[in-house]
Each structure stands twice: as structure tokens, then as C-alpha cells.
């Protein structure tokens, strides 16, 4: 289990990094490496060049935004899951982020893996892409033609495929703040502690609006609108918009059952938070 040969660069500036990517269509960005390195070792990916962005300054920030900007938290490309999870600011501004991060793999992986990296890796079984999508967040990317913002609902185009260009680097993710009177909930069921979920669900309740995002039920992070649905019909209403699939760990019927159970649970949690405040 050794990677195929690749070139490696560790630029000191963002523009050098972008230039390196631009010259090499098969290049990959290395941040935390928690998904990429196993793919390399198993030779499931064989990029010609790795552009290691760990030497870029100023990308490990976690900032609360507001005062003129949209309120929320902006997480830099080198902020590790563990740092985001430990941030009191993040917890205060958008509690769904730490709720979901607690279920991202294991502590050792969270110490190295980056939240932005997980988001642009675009794995529909991962927690953070769903969270970003449900919250209506966005990703800031920089490429040869400058910086642009990709809204979450335009980010995920297919399995493990995002709309970030091959010569672009995601420099930050933005999670909108939880509005006063709103609530969130998150829960997942995995075979083992820290595994990818068989099914996971995240809920956002704001006034009459009830929306739930799901992981591990489809190829891309999926959000369904359950506004106005009676409490005892939430699960079935969600299922009507989803097509869970079989794999070696669970049948589609069992995943459907988990969708029903988790939908009810996360909406209830979100409603409680909305009622009681954080």
C-alpha cells in the first residue's frame, strides 16, 4: 500500500499554490490528508502532483463575521476539525457545526483533518457537506482569475465531485449564524463509534420552516423541506423525497427506517432548541 509516484510542492503563498495547480491538470491539494492519503496509498488516486497548502499563512483562522457582513462563522482552509469543534465562538454562533463535528471520525482524525477539506472532498457520507448545505453556507475559492464564492447548493454536482475548479483552492467555508428563535439538531447512526454513518440527519427549524439534511442516503448531500408537516408524518414525508440504497452494511429498507427515526428525532431536538434557546 504505497502511493504511485507523484511530485510534491509546498508553496509559501497562495498565488504560488494556484500557479502550481494551474500547470498540472492532475494535481491535488493536500490539506489534512485524512481522505486523500489513504486514497493515494491504495492507489485509488494517482495525482501527478500534490500541492501541500499547510505552509500557506493565514488559512487556519476561525472568525465570527457580522457588522456589515452576513453574521456567521468563517472557517479557514487549514482550520482543523478539532479546533473548530473546540471553538466557543463557533458553538455560540452556529451550534450545528460542533454538533455534527463531534461525529466526524475519531479524535486523531479530527486533529489533522480540516473542515474545509471535508467540505470540498464532497463525500455524501460526510457530516460537514450536509451541514453547509442545510445552513445555506458557502465556500470561498481562489483561482487564476481571482476569488469567488460558491453557494452550498451549487457546490455538490455528483459523488465525490464539487464545482471547485481543478486550479482553484478553497480558502474558507462560511456557516451562517443561527438566527434568534431558531434551532438545530443533529444525529447519526453508525455501525461503530466514529464510522461513516449508515444514515445521519441534521435539522434546522426557523419559525414555520422545517428543513432536514441527510447524509449517506444519496450521492450528494440532500436537504428536504418539511415545513408544515405534522410531527408524526415527518419521517414518511422525508422518505417520499429520498431513495435510500442498499450496501453491505444496511438494506434500503433499514436505511429508510433510520431516516424515519432520525428525522423525527432531529426535528424534535431542533424544535426544543428553538423553544428554549441555546
Amino acid at each position: 500500500m504505497k502511493p504511485a509516484p507523484f511530485d510534491y510542492r509546498r508553496p509559501g503563498t497562495l498565488s504560488e499554490a494556484i500557479a502550481a495547480l494551474a500547470g498540472e491538470p492532475d494535481a491535488k491539494v493536500l490539506a489534512g490528508g485524512q481522505s486523500l492519503v489513504p486514497l493515494l496509498s491504495m492507489r485509488l488516486a494517482a495525482p501527478s502532483l500534490l500541492v501541500d497548502i499547510n505552509g500557506l499563512p493565514g488559512l487556519d483562522t476561525i472568525e465570527v463575521t457580522g457588522e456589515g457582513d452576513e453574521p456567521g462563522v468563517r472557517v479557514g482552509a487549514l482550520a482543523r476539525h478539532a479546533a473548530v469543534l473546540a471553538s466557543d465562538d463557533v458553538r455560540r454562533v452556529q451550534p450545528l457545526v460542533p454538533l455534527a463535528l463531534a461525529d466526524v471520525a475519531h479524535a486523531t482524525i479530527r486533529n489533522r483533518g480540516t473542515t474545509v477539506g471535508s467540505i470540498v472532498h464532497a463525500d455524501a457520507a460526510a457530516e460537514m457537506p450536509v451541514v453547509l448545505t442545510l445552513l445555506g453556507g458557502s465556500v470561498e475559492v481562489e483561482g487564476p482569475s481571482g476569488r469567488r464564492t460558491i453557494p452550498a447548493d451549487e457546490l455538490y454536482v455528483g459523488p465525490l465531485e464539487s464545482s471547485v475548479g481543478h486550479d482553484e483552492i478553497a480558502v474558507a467555508a462560511f456557516f451562517p449564524a443561527l438566527r434568534p428563535g431558531a434551532g438545530v439538531g443533529f444525529e447519526e447512526i453508525a455501525r461503530r463509534h466514529g464510522d461513516y454513518a449508515l444514515v445521519g440527519a441534521a435539522a434546522l427549524v426557523e419559525g414555520e420552516s422545517v428543513r432536514v439534511g441527510f447524509l449517506s442516503v444519496s450521492d450528494v448531500p440532500t436537504v428536504v423541506d418539511l415545513s408544515g408537516v405534522a410531527d408524526d408524518e415527518l419521517g414518511d414525508a422525508a422518505l417520499a423525497q429520498l431513495e435510500p440504497m442498499d450496501d453491505i452494511h444496511a438494506t434500503a429498507a433499514y436505511r429508510s427506517q433510520l431516516v424515519r427515526v432520525l428525522t423525527t428525532r432531529v426535528v424534535r431536538s431542533a424544535q426544543e432548541m428553538a423553544r428554549e434557546g441555546m
Binding site: 447512526i189 455501525r191 449508515l198 452494511h249 444496511a250 438494506t251 429498507a253 433499514y254 427506517q257
Partner: peptide, 11 residues
């Protein structure tokens, strides 16, 4: 037996 299989048995 996995939870999924137990669920199938129940069904």
C-alpha cells in the same frame, strides 16, 4: 447479526 439484519427479521 447486524442491526439491519435484525430489522429485516422483525419485518
Amino acid at each position: 447479526i447486524s442491526p439491519s439484519e435484525l430489522y429485516t427479521l422483525r419485518q
